[in-house]
Write a protein that binds this DNA or RNA. Sequence first.
DNA 1: ATGAAAGCGCTAACAG
DNA 2: CTGTTAGCGCTTTCAT
Lengths: 338, 338
Amino acid sequence: MSNKSRKNNYRVSSVDVARLAGVSQSAVSRCFTKGASISEKSKQKVLKAARELNYSPNIIARSLVKKATNIIGIVLTRYKSPFYSRVLGQFTRKIQAKGYNTLLMDIGNDETVDAVLSTALQYQVDGLIITSATLSSAMVEGCLTSQTPVILFNRYAMYNEVSAVYCDGMDGGRKAADQMIGRHNRFACIKGEEGSSTSRDRSQGFIQRLEENGISDCLYERGNYSYESGSAAADKLLSRKDRPDAIFCVSDLMALGAMDVARYKYGLEIPKDLSIMGFDNINMASWSAYNLSTVKQPVTKMVDSTLSQLFNEIENNEDHTIVRKIKTELVLRKSTRN
Amino acid sequence: MSNKSRKNNYRVSSVDVARLAGVSQSAVSRCFTKGASISEKSKQKVLKAARELNYSPNIIARSLVKKATNIIGIVLTRYKSPFYSRVLGQFTRKIQAKGYNTLLMDIGNDETVDAVLSTALQYQVDGLIITSATLSSAMVEGCLTSQTPVILFNRYAMYNEVSAVYCDGMDGGRKAADQMIGRHNRFACIKGEEGSSTSRDRSQGFIQRLEENGISDCLYERGNYSYESGSAAADKLLSRKDRPDAIFCVSDLMALGAMDVARYKYGLEIPKDLSIMGFDNINMASWSAYNLSTVKQPVTKMVDSTLSQLFNEIENNEDHTIVRKIKTELVLRKSTRN
DNA sequence: ATGAAAGCGCTAACAG
DNA sequence: CTGTTAGCGCTTTCAT
């Protein structure tokens, strides 16, 4: 059996159906295009033939002529985070509900982002959602000339030709600080990787607010958003003699890791000896083992906003770009004093 | 600005490039088809023109003629589970590495599975991975006539025309039982939903092994694989006067929920008063707050096996279906006595 | 090595 | 309502 035998194998097409049904090929096309004018009689003939041959229209061919694939590309970076799983789940479900489909693309490191985006464009996606990755100007150019709407999710644009929706990390950081100030003596922050803009915003908001209140010696360590890195960072912080009694983490996962070293390695009681706050409000934050106070990113609101803007740009050809900054909400549980 | 103005907008094609480069359209096609015979000189001309026009080939058109889209469809049910996030992540990354792309489809309930699969087929996916969903015979038929290779992931086939790779839940359940037998007096099991075959296998293995050892009064409750449902099920179990001192949960997430009610609602000590085991070995199982003993599904092995079979069927037209049952591994931590 | 031409499977005028 | 016809943007013989 040769390498190509599959490709050469017959795939039933509309002309086969037409022949069997005794109608023209356009009739079968009309039969599968809702709103097209076709008599009930031919419709039945076509349907019968189609069923017999197990036919269904080739969307690729349709896309070629309609110049619309009905597919939305979603780009994200290695998503270890439960936050992004949730986001992705909501996106795909809602995209499907809208009659579109999702081409999911994962980028390992920032070097590959251009390649990935470019193949998305080559697939003629009708729209693009980019999560936690930056957009090179070459790619902005590409999207522009191909007229492909793009929304940055949880990033903001350096270029104002592209829309963005993200949550207000700066304000979230400030809220976290407000919750802790006055109840603690020594503050620390566990940030994300150096380049990360979300990490920067959140920690900056926190630190600024502290400074506004006369606290200028906030410690910090960095993690990579994982549980383990949160543990490691907290470990460093807690091994100091001037150990902090309040730690703000720029992600919940890191906060959980921090809580666990604090409790199980240092035997600290939370929040008696140490308050911890996270950011995201992932499911685990509410688990009884943690009860993590956190700054909630309103996922549903963010997703809906992204999608409504995207479909607006796609369907109404609204080329008006927007930047929507969504407010966070404080979720107080028991990992902080009150 | 009309509704259609975007669609009518110009998208640069190979003929545009050809014209600018002063070569034939086929030349530009060849330029982008590796291995095609084209002189260095024309190649440069084409490349230059392409760059100028910001051109890149339309994969949809190419797919139409090549009868191959290079896209793999992945179907999964509302994936709340961290296990499936991990699986999905591995799949997409490895699919991309192979030069393919992922069309991600989510099915809410079993009613929609046919619709979803059928649109995947209409998109002419080169292959299909179906996770935790059953395949109707109509769909098997559809895949067969369209010659689309399908692999069932963590399901087994009722039909032997379709390949499957899954982990041996029955054996996993048995291993869990072996670990608990002799150290406990009263056993219970938290199963998944009634229809779920994975739940059935895992719990059956557990219960059978118990019976082989003369224990025939294993209690059980059902959950839906979520943390909350695990808590609820454990709550019922633990409120009995003949409370179990060993609980096997068919998923880690439920086991974590069970641990938390046991500890925080009933004040039980684990594993002193109660042993708990899970299934999957998700990341959280190793967190210090839990230290959950569990039956590990070897994700990487399963994913690799699935993919190698799938690509084998795609590229070598190997229509030899396989069913690969992968062995689980016991991971002992501190939630069980030893 | 290159261009001309045929066609992938479909939709969309256009006549009738 | 229906068939005919002309493409969508590309790959691929087939000559040259």
